[in-house]
């Protein structure tokens, strides 16, 4: 079983309240560390579990600048066999369509894979679009919101839906986008870290992929961001401290004023 796992390095979601926008309109996120996108960690865990049961190998792919190598090394330390970083100046500024095109090109180039796993959404842009769109480029089916993968003769996949879970039987190859609740990702082991330091992170450029420049990066992106701004959601608040009974009275008063207390 050849398994691919798509991983996105993102600014650590714990620190998004530190993001600001400079006067010329660019995002300032200095000092926020780059980490593996949380649900991608679950996708990798699921890939490793399937590999352990069924044999095969796991290759992680990431489209990111060269400095994202650390995230791929961490994936190897968790247990991935191969890591491929798709990094090229021409890939920069890509929206989901252009990103999925590059990832699909790489999956073709280093494939074929029986199963492709990805996190359901990224913490930074949260679009949940890339896995399905990779599926379209590769002409393979995709399911998102995956909460459980059962691997018997075929693949039984449970997808979160309003009010429950939809159960699907799927043929391979398939691409699945998994939710965070699907498993608890393992930690990196000491042996894993040693191995990761010895493993080559393969850096692949546009020319190695044979990607069409008009389909990648800013040029290949049908959407264009005109302007970004920090959403001001601050209120004029009042601090309250002191006796619990007084605080309780105050809360009840405020709820009454807001018409939220049915008496």
């Amino acid at each position: 079983m050849r398994i691919a796992c798509l991983v996105k390095p993102v600014p650590d979601p714990e620190h998004y309240d530190r993001i600001s926008v400079s006067p010329n309109g660019t995002l300032v996120r200095a000092g926020i560390p780059i980490v593996m996108n949380p649900s991608d960690r679950n996708a990798l865990e699921e890939a490793l579990k399937i590999k352990e049961r069924r044999g095969g190998d796991v290759t992680v792919f990431s489209m990111a600048p060269d400095d994202a190598e650390g995230v791929l090394r961490e994936a190897v330390a968790m247990g991935a066999d191969h890591a491929i970083l798709l990094s090229d100046r021409n890939f920069a500024g890509a929206d989901t369509l252009a990103t999925s095109y590059v990832l699909a090109k790489a999956l073709e180039r280093f494939g074929p894979f029986d199963l492709i796993l990805a996190g359901n959404e990224s913490a930074d842009s949260s679009t949940s679009q890339v896995p399905s769109q990779v599926g379209v480029w590769l002409s393979i089916p995709a399911l998102t919101g995956v909460a459980e993968i059962e691997h018997n003769e075929s693949l039984t996949v449970r997808c979160s839906s309003e009010g429950g879970r939809a159960v699907y039987e799927v043929d391979l190859p398939v691409i699945l986008a998994v939710k965070r609740g699907i498993n608890s990702p393992r930690y990196t082991s000491f042996a894993g870290i040693i191995r990761a330091n010895k493993t080559e992170i393969k850096i692949v450029r546009a020319e190695d992929l044979g990607s069409d420049a008009s389909m990648t990066g800013l040029e290949g992106s049908p959407t264009k961001t005109l302007k970004t701004s920090v959403l001001d959601i601050c209120r004029k608040g009042e601090y309250v401290e002191g006796d619990a009974g007084d605080i309780a009275d105050r809360i009840i008063n405020e709820l009454r004023k807001a018409g939220a207390l049915r008496e």
Binding site: S125, T127, S128, Q129, V130, S132, A142, S161, T223
Partner: peptide, 22 residues
Amino acid sequence: TALGSMLAPEVAAHLRTGLAAH
């Protein structure tokens, strides 16, 4: 929705058009 989130990116990719999320 769960269904819309599966449908939208597939349709957008087939049409090679942009898709703004949420």
